[in-house]
Amino acid sequence: MSRPTTIFAGLLVSGAILYHFRAELSSDMHQVRNQLTDVQNRLTGSVPGSKISNALTSHPTASILDKPKELLDESTTYIQSRILPSVKDTWNSHVIGLATNINELDAEKIQKKVKEVKDKWL
């Protein structure tokens, strides 16, 4: 295989995997949003005579409710700044290594070895 073909194949495979990962992530986020909306609706219905936002903000421990949002924001920032670049670099190095190995593959030598093994065992 020629080098451009190998590189193109690597890019195509990595693009397909990333597209699939993105679609799954989008689906999961949609499910989480639906569950949060359902929980919010149930919580709103459980507080008689007032809106849930008023009940939560007037509560003395309302600042505790902001903590999960801060943790989520910190986690999102950490994933975007640390994990994704690391995974991307590792992925790229593996794709480049695979493309290089495929490009340096000697088909005739492999065919000879396969024939030798076949003749020896069959």
Results as ranks from 00 to 15, higher is better:
M1G: 09
M1L: 08
M1Q: 05
R3D: 12
T5H: 05
T6A: 13
A9G: 04
A9F: 02
G10I: 00
S14Q: 12
H20A: 14
H20N: 11
F21W: 04
R22N: 13
E24H: 06
S26C: 07
S27N: 07
S27Y: 04
D28H: 07
Q31G: 06
V32C: 01
R33S: 09
N34P: 01
D38Y: 11
N41S: 10
N41R: 12
R42N: 10
L43H: 02
T44L: 13
T44Q: 12
S46A: 06
S46E: 01
S46N: 03
V47Y: 00
P48I: 03
G49A: 02
I52F: 00
S53A: 14
S53Q: 13
N54C: 06
A55L: 01
A55K: 00
L56A: 05
H59P: 00
P60A: 10
T61I: 15
L65C: 09
K67S: 12
P68F: 01
K69S: 14
S75C: 09
T76R: 05
T77M: 10
I79D: 06
Q80M: 11
Q80L: 09
Q80H: 08
L84E: 08
L84N: 07
S86I: 01
N92A: 12
N92H: 11
S93A: 09
H94F: 15
I96H: 04
G97F: 01
A99T: 04
T100M: 08
T100Q: 03
T100P: 03
N101C: 09
I102V: 06
N103K: 06
D106R: 04
D106Q: 06
A107Q: 07
A107D: 12
E108T: 06
K109V: 11
Q111E: 15
K112G: 13
K115M: 15
K118G: 09
K120V: 09
W121A: 15
L122H: 12
L122A: 15
